[in-house]
Amino acid sequence: MFGDFPIDNKIVLVTGGGSGIGLQLIRQASAKGAKTIIADLQLTPEAQQLVDSTDTVIFQRCDVRNWADLEAPIQLSRDKWNDVPDVYVASAGIFEPKWASFWEDSESTRYATVDINVNHPIKFTRLAIRALLEKNKKGVVCLVSSVAGLGGSLPTPLYSATKHAIWGFVKAMAPLDALEGVKITAICPGLVPTPLWNTLPEFREQYSADQVDHVSAEEVAECMLSLIEQGKYAGGAVIEITRPGPDGRRDIPPWNVPPTTMYATRSDEMVKKLVAPVRAVLQKERKAKL
Protein backbone atom coordinates (compact mmCIF):
# COMPACT_ATOMS: atom_id res chain seq x y z
CA MET A 1 0.00 0.00 0.00
CA PHE A 2 1.20 3.50 -0.82
CA GLY A 3 -0.13 4.86 2.49
CA ASP A 4 -0.54 8.40 3.76
CA PHE A 5 1.68 11.06 2.22
CA PRO A 6 1.66 14.29 4.30
CA ILE A 7 3.16 17.14 2.31
CA ASP A 8 4.89 19.07 5.09
CA ASN A 9 8.60 19.41 4.27
CA LYS A 10 7.98 18.08 0.77
CA ILE A 11 8.39 19.84 -2.58
CA VAL A 12 5.22 20.51 -4.57
CA LEU A 13 5.37 21.56 -8.24
CA VAL A 14 2.22 22.98 -9.84
CA THR A 15 1.84 23.91 -13.50
CA GLY A 16 -0.74 26.65 -13.89
CA GLY A 17 0.01 27.67 -10.31
CA GLY A 18 -0.12 31.37 -11.05
CA SER A 19 -3.90 31.65 -10.74
CA GLY A 20 -7.14 29.77 -10.14
CA ILE A 21 -7.13 26.25 -8.71
CA GLY A 22 -3.36 25.94 -9.07
CA LEU A 23 -2.69 29.05 -7.00
CA GLN A 24 -5.06 27.91 -4.27
CA LEU A 25 -3.24 24.59 -4.15
CA ILE A 26 0.08 26.42 -3.83
CA ARG A 27 -1.35 28.48 -0.96
CA GLN A 28 -2.69 25.47 0.91
CA ALA A 29 0.42 23.35 0.37
CA SER A 30 2.64 26.21 1.54
CA ALA A 31 0.49 26.69 4.64
CA LYS A 32 1.04 23.00 5.44
CA GLY A 33 4.80 23.43 5.36
CA ALA A 34 5.64 22.39 1.81
CA LYS A 35 8.15 24.06 -0.46
CA THR A 36 6.35 24.97 -3.66
CA ILE A 37 7.14 25.82 -7.28
CA ILE A 38 4.75 27.75 -9.50
CA ALA A 39 5.29 26.85 -13.17
CA ASP A 40 3.26 29.21 -15.32
CA LEU A 41 3.50 31.74 -18.13
CA GLN A 42 3.14 34.60 -15.67
CA LEU A 43 2.05 35.47 -12.15
CA THR A 44 -1.12 37.24 -11.18
CA PRO A 45 -0.61 40.09 -8.66
CA GLU A 46 -1.92 37.74 -5.96
CA ALA A 47 0.63 35.07 -6.89
CA GLN A 48 3.45 37.61 -7.17
CA GLN A 49 2.69 38.83 -3.66
CA LEU A 50 2.92 35.26 -2.37
CA VAL A 51 6.27 34.67 -4.10
CA ASP A 52 7.62 37.94 -2.72
CA SER A 53 6.55 37.11 0.82
CA THR A 54 8.50 33.86 1.31
CA ASP A 55 11.51 31.99 -0.05
CA THR A 56 9.64 28.66 0.01
CA VAL A 57 7.38 29.65 -2.90
CA ILE A 58 9.32 30.17 -6.13
CA PHE A 59 8.37 30.84 -9.73
CA GLN A 60 9.59 29.30 -12.97
CA ARG A 61 8.22 30.63 -16.24
CA CYS A 62 6.78 27.69 -18.16
CA ASP A 63 4.93 27.23 -21.44
CA VAL A 64 3.48 23.75 -20.90
CA ARG A 65 3.43 23.10 -24.66
CA ASN A 66 7.24 23.13 -24.59
CA TRP A 67 8.66 19.96 -23.08
CA ALA A 68 11.93 21.65 -22.17
CA ASP A 69 9.89 24.16 -20.18
CA LEU A 70 8.22 21.29 -18.32
CA GLU A 71 11.64 19.95 -17.33
CA ALA A 72 12.90 23.36 -16.17
CA PRO A 73 11.05 23.59 -12.82
CA ILE A 74 12.25 20.09 -11.91
CA GLN A 75 15.80 21.25 -12.52
CA LEU A 76 15.09 24.41 -10.53
CA SER A 77 14.10 22.19 -7.61
CA ARG A 78 17.39 20.30 -7.89
CA ASP A 79 19.35 23.55 -8.01
CA LYS A 80 17.58 25.27 -5.10
CA TRP A 81 16.76 22.39 -2.77
CA ASN A 82 19.09 19.64 -4.00
CA ASP A 83 16.13 17.37 -4.63
CA VAL A 84 13.33 16.73 -7.11
CA PRO A 85 9.69 17.50 -6.28
CA ASP A 86 7.67 14.93 -4.36
CA VAL A 87 4.30 16.08 -5.71
CA TYR A 88 3.48 17.06 -9.31
CA VAL A 89 0.19 18.79 -10.10
CA ALA A 90 -0.78 19.55 -13.71
CA SER A 91 -3.27 22.37 -13.20
CA ALA A 92 -2.62 24.38 -16.37
CA GLY A 93 -5.42 24.08 -18.91
CA ILE A 94 -7.70 25.95 -21.30
CA PHE A 95 -11.44 25.75 -21.94
CA GLU A 96 -11.29 25.54 -25.74
CA PRO A 97 -11.20 29.27 -26.50
CA LYS A 98 -12.04 30.45 -30.02
CA TRP A 99 -8.37 30.59 -31.01
CA ALA A 100 -8.01 26.87 -30.17
CA SER A 101 -11.48 25.63 -31.04
CA PHE A 102 -12.76 22.60 -32.95
CA TRP A 103 -15.63 24.59 -34.42
CA GLU A 104 -13.68 27.74 -35.31
CA ASP A 105 -10.89 25.48 -36.65
CA SER A 106 -8.50 28.38 -37.22
CA GLU A 107 -5.23 26.65 -36.29
CA SER A 108 -3.03 25.61 -39.18
CA THR A 109 -1.00 22.71 -37.76
CA ARG A 110 -2.41 21.38 -34.46
CA TYR A 111 -4.98 22.05 -31.75
CA ALA A 112 -3.46 23.97 -28.83
CA THR A 113 -6.25 22.69 -26.59
CA VAL A 114 -4.93 19.15 -27.08
CA ASP A 115 -1.31 20.20 -26.52
CA ILE A 116 -2.15 22.03 -23.29
CA ASN A 117 -4.82 19.73 -21.87
CA VAL A 118 -3.46 16.32 -22.91
CA ASN A 119 0.15 16.33 -24.10
CA HIS A 120 1.25 18.56 -21.22
CA PRO A 121 -0.10 16.46 -18.30
CA ILE A 122 0.94 13.18 -19.90
CA LYS A 123 4.51 14.33 -20.58
CA PHE A 124 4.61 16.01 -17.15
CA THR A 125 3.70 12.67 -15.58
CA ARG A 126 6.48 10.92 -17.48
CA LEU A 127 9.00 13.50 -16.29
CA ALA A 128 7.72 13.12 -12.74
CA ILE A 129 8.11 9.33 -12.81
CA ARG A 130 11.65 9.61 -14.14
CA ALA A 131 12.62 12.25 -11.57
CA LEU A 132 11.23 10.23 -8.65
CA LEU A 133 12.98 7.06 -9.79
CA GLU A 134 16.18 9.07 -10.11
CA LYS A 135 16.00 9.79 -6.37
CA ASN A 136 14.52 6.36 -5.53
CA LYS A 137 11.64 7.93 -3.60
CA LYS A 138 7.86 7.86 -3.49
CA GLY A 139 5.77 10.61 -5.00
CA VAL A 140 2.33 11.66 -6.18
CA VAL A 141 1.02 13.07 -9.45
CA CYS A 142 -2.40 14.75 -9.52
CA LEU A 143 -3.97 15.69 -12.84
CA VAL A 144 -7.03 17.79 -13.58
CA SER A 145 -9.84 16.25 -15.60
CA SER A 146 -13.40 17.60 -15.51
CA VAL A 147 -17.03 16.53 -15.34
CA ALA A 148 -16.81 17.14 -19.10
CA GLY A 149 -14.49 14.13 -19.10
CA LEU A 150 -17.32 11.95 -17.80
CA GLY A 151 -19.90 13.09 -20.33
CA GLY A 152 -19.79 15.29 -23.39
CA SER A 153 -20.19 18.86 -24.56
CA LEU A 154 -21.06 19.65 -28.17
CA PRO A 155 -19.95 23.33 -27.95
CA THR A 156 -16.50 22.32 -26.65
CA PRO A 157 -15.75 18.85 -28.04
CA LEU A 158 -11.98 19.25 -27.88
CA TYR A 159 -12.15 20.18 -24.20
CA SER A 160 -14.42 17.21 -23.52
CA ALA A 161 -12.14 14.85 -25.44
CA THR A 162 -9.03 16.07 -23.64
CA LYS A 163 -10.62 15.58 -20.23
CA HIS A 164 -11.76 12.08 -21.21
CA ALA A 165 -8.14 11.41 -22.13
CA ILE A 166 -6.88 12.40 -18.69
CA TRP A 167 -9.38 10.11 -16.97
CA GLY A 168 -8.35 7.21 -19.18
CA PHE A 169 -4.65 7.92 -18.68
CA VAL A 170 -4.96 7.99 -14.89
CA LYS A 171 -6.84 4.68 -14.89
CA ALA A 172 -4.04 3.19 -16.97
CA MET A 173 -1.50 4.40 -14.39
CA ALA A 174 -3.34 2.85 -11.42
CA PRO A 175 -0.90 -0.04 -10.79
CA LEU A 176 2.13 2.24 -10.60
CA ASP A 177 1.77 3.04 -6.90
CA ALA A 178 2.18 -0.62 -5.97
CA LEU A 179 4.82 -1.33 -8.63
CA GLU A 180 7.06 1.71 -8.25
CA GLY A 181 5.76 3.89 -5.41
CA VAL A 182 4.35 6.60 -7.69
CA LYS A 183 0.68 7.37 -7.09
CA ILE A 184 -1.18 8.99 -9.99
CA THR A 185 -4.64 10.44 -9.43
CA ALA A 186 -7.07 12.94 -10.93
CA ILE A 187 -9.84 15.30 -9.98
CA CYS A 188 -12.95 16.10 -12.03
CA PRO A 189 -14.26 19.53 -11.00
CA GLY A 190 -17.54 20.97 -12.13
CA LEU A 191 -17.89 24.68 -12.75
CA VAL A 192 -15.24 26.61 -10.83
CA PRO A 193 -15.31 30.43 -10.84
CA THR A 194 -11.68 31.12 -11.80
CA PRO A 195 -10.12 34.03 -13.72
CA LEU A 196 -10.61 31.92 -16.85
CA TRP A 197 -14.33 32.72 -16.84
CA ASN A 198 -13.67 36.45 -16.48
CA THR A 199 -11.70 36.40 -19.73
CA LEU A 200 -14.52 34.63 -21.59
CA PRO A 201 -17.71 36.63 -20.96
CA GLU A 202 -19.39 34.95 -23.91
CA PHE A 203 -18.83 31.57 -22.25
CA ARG A 204 -20.29 32.82 -18.97
CA GLU A 205 -23.48 33.61 -20.83
CA GLN A 206 -23.46 30.49 -22.99
CA TYR A 207 -22.98 28.13 -20.03
CA SER A 208 -25.24 30.08 -17.63
CA ALA A 209 -22.27 30.16 -15.31
CA ASP A 210 -23.94 32.48 -12.82
CA GLN A 211 -27.04 30.29 -12.54
CA VAL A 212 -25.68 26.79 -12.00
CA ASP A 213 -24.07 25.08 -9.02
CA HIS A 214 -20.39 25.78 -8.68
CA VAL A 215 -17.53 24.93 -6.36
CA SER A 216 -14.77 27.29 -5.28
CA ALA A 217 -11.16 26.95 -6.36
CA GLU A 218 -10.24 26.73 -2.66
CA GLU A 219 -12.45 23.69 -2.13
CA VAL A 220 -11.18 21.97 -5.27
CA ALA A 221 -7.60 22.52 -4.09
CA GLU A 222 -8.45 21.10 -0.67
CA CYS A 223 -9.95 18.04 -2.35
CA MET A 224 -6.80 17.62 -4.45
CA LEU A 225 -4.68 17.70 -1.31
CA SER A 226 -6.86 14.93 0.13
CA LEU A 227 -6.14 12.85 -2.98
CA ILE A 228 -2.44 13.52 -2.58
CA GLU A 229 -2.08 13.02 1.16
CA GLN A 230 -4.61 10.36 2.18
CA GLY A 231 -3.70 6.73 1.86
CA LYS A 232 -7.31 5.72 1.32
CA TYR A 233 -6.93 7.05 -2.23
CA ALA A 234 -4.86 4.62 -4.24
CA GLY A 235 -3.29 5.11 -7.63
CA GLY A 236 -5.92 5.59 -10.31
CA ALA A 237 -8.32 7.32 -7.91
CA VAL A 238 -10.55 9.92 -9.56
CA ILE A 239 -12.82 12.25 -7.57
CA GLU A 240 -15.63 14.34 -8.98
CA ILE A 241 -16.36 17.58 -7.12
CA THR A 242 -19.27 19.73 -8.23
CA ARG A 243 -20.63 21.42 -5.09
CA PRO A 244 -19.35 22.51 -1.68
CA GLY A 245 -19.34 19.96 1.10
CA PRO A 246 -19.12 16.15 1.23
CA ASP A 247 -22.35 15.70 -0.75
CA GLY A 248 -20.72 17.45 -3.70
CA ARG A 249 -18.01 14.80 -4.04
CA ARG A 250 -17.97 11.23 -5.27
CA ASP A 251 -15.37 8.66 -6.21
CA ILE A 252 -15.55 7.70 -9.88
CA PRO A 253 -15.19 3.93 -10.33
CA PRO A 254 -12.66 2.60 -12.83
CA TRP A 255 -15.49 1.18 -14.94
CA ASN A 256 -18.77 2.93 -15.70
CA VAL A 257 -20.05 -0.27 -17.31
CA PRO A 258 -19.38 -3.89 -16.28
CA PRO A 259 -15.84 -4.86 -17.29
CA THR A 260 -15.54 -6.76 -20.55
CA THR A 261 -14.84 -10.47 -20.30
CA MET A 262 -11.43 -9.79 -21.83
CA TYR A 263 -10.39 -7.93 -18.68
CA ALA A 264 -12.47 -9.88 -16.19
CA THR A 265 -10.76 -13.18 -17.09
CA ARG A 266 -7.14 -12.05 -17.09
CA SER A 267 -4.96 -14.08 -14.74
CA ASP A 268 -2.23 -12.62 -12.53
CA GLU A 269 0.33 -14.13 -14.88
CA MET A 270 -1.26 -12.37 -17.85
CA VAL A 271 -1.14 -9.07 -16.00
CA LYS A 272 2.54 -9.59 -15.16
CA LYS A 273 3.31 -10.21 -18.83
CA LEU A 274 1.36 -7.12 -19.79
CA VAL A 275 3.30 -4.77 -17.53
CA ALA A 276 6.71 -6.46 -17.79
CA PRO A 277 8.12 -4.18 -20.55
CA VAL A 278 7.04 -1.11 -18.61
CA ARG A 279 8.63 -2.37 -15.43
CA ALA A 280 11.84 -3.17 -17.30
CA VAL A 281 12.11 0.43 -18.52
CA LEU A 282 11.40 1.83 -15.07
CA GLN A 283 13.86 -0.49 -13.36
CA LYS A 284 16.55 0.53 -15.83
CA GLU A 285 15.92 4.19 -15.02
CA ARG A 286 16.02 3.49 -11.30
CA LYS A 287 19.26 1.51 -11.42
CA ALA A 288 20.95 4.05 -13.65
CA LYS A 289 20.72 6.64 -10.87
CA LEU A 290 21.60 4.46 -7.85
Results as ranks from 00 to 15, higher is better:
residue 17 G to T: 08
residue 180 E to W: 10
residue 71 E to H: 04
residue 270 M to W: 04
residue 143 L to Y: 00
residue 165 A to E: 07
residue 241 I to R: 12
residue 131 A to L: 11
residue 272 K to F: 11
residue 125 T to E: 06
residue 78 R to G: 01
residue 65 R to F: 00
residue 278 V to G: 15
residue 239 I to P: 08
residue 18 G to A: 07
residue 27 R to S: 10
residue 2 F to I: 00
residue 77 S to T: 07
residue 165 A to T: 07
residue 151 G to N: 06
residue 44 T to F: 04
residue 31 A to V: 03
residue 234 A to D: 13
residue 227 L to A: 09
residue 70 L to C: 09
residue 33 G to D: 02
residue 130 R to I: 13
residue 167 W to C: 03
residue 128 A to D: 08
residue 118 V to G: 04
residue 170 V to M: 06
residue 247 D to V: 04
residue 34 A to F: 08
residue 75 Q to C: 01
residue 192 V to N: 01
residue 84 V to Q: 04
residue 254 P to L: 10
residue 60 Q to L: 00
residue 53 S to E: 03
residue 13 L to S: 06
residue 148 A to Q: 10
residue 70 L to K: 03
residue 184 I to M: 11
residue 287 K to S: 14
residue 56 T to P: 02
residue 175 P to S: 12
residue 76 L to S: 05
residue 213 D to F: 00
residue 41 L to S: 04
residue 214 H to E: 12
residue 233 Y to C: 08
residue 26 I to L: 03
residue 157 P to G: 10
residue 21 I to N: 02
residue 156 T to V: 11
residue 198 N to C: 00
residue 34 A to N: 01
residue 242 T to D: 11
residue 220 V to N: 04
residue 44 T to D: 05
residue 132 L to I: 10
residue 158 L to F: 08
residue 139 G to Q: 10
residue 217 A to S: 14
residue 171 K to W: 10
residue 79 D to L: 12
residue 285 E to A: 13
residue 30 S to Y: 12
residue 226 S to C: 10
residue 197 W to E: 01
residue 198 N to R: 02
residue 173 M to E: 11
residue 235 G to Q: 05
residue 96 E to L: 07
residue 48 Q to P: 07
residue 163 K to W: 00
residue 58 I to K: 08
residue 173 M to K: 09
residue 195 P to F: 02
residue 4 D to N: 15
residue 46 E to H: 04
residue 238 V to M: 14
residue 31 A to Y: 00
residue 18 G to Q: 06
residue 276 A to I: 09
residue 284 K to M: 12
residue 205 E to W: 00
residue 31 A to W: 01
residue 251 D to V: 14
residue 124 F to I: 14
residue 253 P to T: 10
residue 212 V to G: 09
residue 264 A to Q: 15
residue 213 D to L: 08
